[in-house]
C-alpha cells in the first residue's frame, strides 16, 4: 500500500529565497510523524505549501495526497479531501461567529464526503459533544472567530476544529507553544482520541514535552530546508539534550526516510 502523503524532493522558494531544499517524506495512514528543527528551518513553510498557500513558489518536486497531485489543488479542495492544518497563528475574523464559520466549513467537508449537511440544531449537538472533550466553555461557539482569544484558547480552538472536521491528515504547527501544562494535556488527549488506523498526523514542535503525550511513530529533524535525520521517538530526547548543533554537519547528507526502509 502506498503512503497517504508522499513528498518527493520538494524545493520551495519565497521571494527568490530557497527555503525547502529537497524534502522527501512518506506518511502512511495511521502514522504520527513529528517534525522538529530550529527556528527558520522551514517547518511552517512545509505546512503552508502542503495546505496550498499561494505566495510560495514550488521549484521542483511532487506531492501526492491519497494518490492525487496535491500541488494542483486549490486550498479548499485540499481541505475537502481531508487535509487539515492547525495554524501556528490562527486568524481573527471579526463579526463572524465560530458557529457560523464552523458549520459552513463542516458542511463543505461533508458535501465532499457525500454526506448530508447538518442543520443548525444537529450542528450544535455535534459541536457541543466535541467541545466537552476539550473542556471548552459553552459560549465559545457564539464568539467571533479567534477574536480576542488568548493564545491558549486559539490553540485549543484549532484542535476543536480538528475534532469537528475529522480530516485524514492533520498538520499541527506548534500547537503546543504557549500552552500551560494542563492545556497541553487536554490538546494531546484530543489528538489521541482522533488517532486511528485511517488518520495520520504531522506534528511540528520544538519540545519533546508534547511528544510525551502524543507519542510519535517517527521523528524528523528539519534543518536549513532539509530533513537531516529521521528516527524514533528517542531522537526527540536526544535533541532535547544536545540541541541541533551536532546535526549541522549532517546538513549535506541525504538520509533515507522511514517509508523507504
Amino acid at each position: 500500500m502506498s503512503a497517504l502523503l508522499q513528498i518527493r524532493n520538494l524545493r520551495v522558494a519565497i521571494e527568490g529565497k530557497e527555503i525547502l531544499r529537497g524534502v522527501s517524506l512518506d506518511v502512511y495512514a495511521g502514522e504520527v510523524h513529528a517534525i522538529m528543527g530550529p527556528n527558520g528551518s522551514g517547518k511552517s513553510t512545509l505546512a503552508a505549501v502542503l495546505a496550498g498557500r499561494e505566495e510560495y513558489e514550488v521549484l521542483e518536486g511532487e506531492v501526492l495526497f491519497d494518490g492525487q497531485n496535491l500541488l494542483e489543488m486549490e486550498p479548499e479542495e485540499r481541505a475537502r479531501a481531508g487535509l487539515f492544518l492547525a495554524f501556528q497563528y490562527p486568524v481573527e475574523i471579526p463579526g463572524v461567529s465560530m458557529a457560523t464559520f464552523l458549520r459552513t466549513a463542516l458542511n463543505e467537508v461533508r458535501k465532499a464526503r457525500g454526506q448530508e449537511p447538518l442543520d443548525p440544531i444537529q450542528f450544535l449537538s455535534y459541536a457541543r459533544e466535541r467541545m466537552s472533550w476539550l473542556g471548552m466553555e459553552p459560549d465559545f461557539l457564539q464568539r467571533a472567530v479567534n477574536e480576542g482569544f488568548s493564545g491558549g484558547e486559539k490553540k485549543r480552538g484549532e484542535i476543536f476544529q480538528l475534532l469537528l472536521l475529522e480530516p485524514r491528515l492533520a498538520i499541527l504547527d506548534e500547537t503546543d507553544s504557549g500552552l500551560d501544562i494542563d492545556a497541553l494535556k487536554i490538546v494531546a488527549s484530543g489528538v489521541n482520541r482522533m488517532r486511528s488506523p485511517e488518520r495520520s498526523f504531522i506534528v511540528i514542535t520544538h519540545y519533546q514535552r508534547l511528544l510525551n503525550y502524543i507519542v510519535p511513530d517517527v521523528v524528523h529533524v528539519l534543518f536549513d530546508g532539509r530533513i537531516v535525520r529521521t528516527g524514533g521517538r528517542e531522537l526527540a530526547l536526544e535533541l532535547e539534550e544536545r540541541g541541533y548543533d551536532w546535526l549541522r554537519s549532517e546538513g549535506e547528507l541525504v538520509l533515507p526516510t522511514l517509508g523507504e526502509q
Partner: peptide, 16 residues
C-alpha cells in the same frame, strides 16, 4: 480583506 483571512477560511474547505 487580507490573504490570511481568506486562506484560513479556504483551509477549512470554504470557497473564496
Amino acid at each position: 480583506i487580507g490573504e490570511d483571512m481568506l486562506f484560513y477560511c479556504r483551509q477549512r474547505g470554504i470557497s473564496e
